[in-house]
Measured scan of single mutants.
Amino acid sequence: GTVKVQGITIKVPNPDKAYKIAKKLAKKYNLTVTRKGNTIKVE
């Protein structure tokens, strides 16, 4: 899958794990995490 952070896309082998990490970071930096299948977008 991929993770998008402010325009940066990161390929990740485990979208579930990445999503959990993204959620933690999002809370810390007051961002929104959206997930569509293997693509995770943080904005």
Rank of each mutant, 00 (worst) to 15 (best):
K17N: 08
V42Y: 04
I10D: 01
I40W: 04
V42L: 12
I40R: 00
I10V: 08
K28R: 08
K4M: 14
V33K: 01
V12N: 02
L25R: 00
I40V: 05
A22F: 15
T34H: 05
G7L: 09
A26V: 08
V12K: 01
A22H: 01
N14M: 12
Q6E: 07
V5C: 15
A18P: 00
I21T: 04
P13A: 12
N38V: 05
K17A: 12
T32M: 08
T2W: 15
K4P: 07
T39Q: 10
K23P: 00
D16C: 15
K17F: 13
T9Y: 10
K27L: 09
K27D: 06
K23G: 04
A22N: 00
V33S: 01
A22S: 03
N14Y: 10
K27M: 09
K36E: 14
G1S: 07
K36Q: 13
V33Q: 00
Y19E: 05
G37W: 02
T9P: 04
G37K: 07
T32Y: 08
Y29F: 10
T9F: 11
G1R: 02
T34D: 02
K20Y: 12
N14C: 15
K41L: 15
R35I: 11
A26P: 00
A22R: 01
Y19D: 01
E43D: 05
A22V: 13
I40K: 07
N38S: 07
T39L: 10
G7V: 10
K27F: 07
N38E: 07
K11I: 12
K4F: 14
T39W: 08
T39C: 15
G1Q: 07
T9S: 09
G37R: 03
L31W: 08
R35G: 04
V42C: 10
T32E: 06
K41D: 06
V12Y: 05
Y19I: 06
V3A: 02
N30I: 06
T39A: 08
T9V: 10
V33D: 00
R35Q: 06
I21R: 02
D16R: 06
R35E: 03
G37L: 01
K27H: 06
K4H: 14
T32V: 14
K24L: 14
K36H: 12
V12M: 06
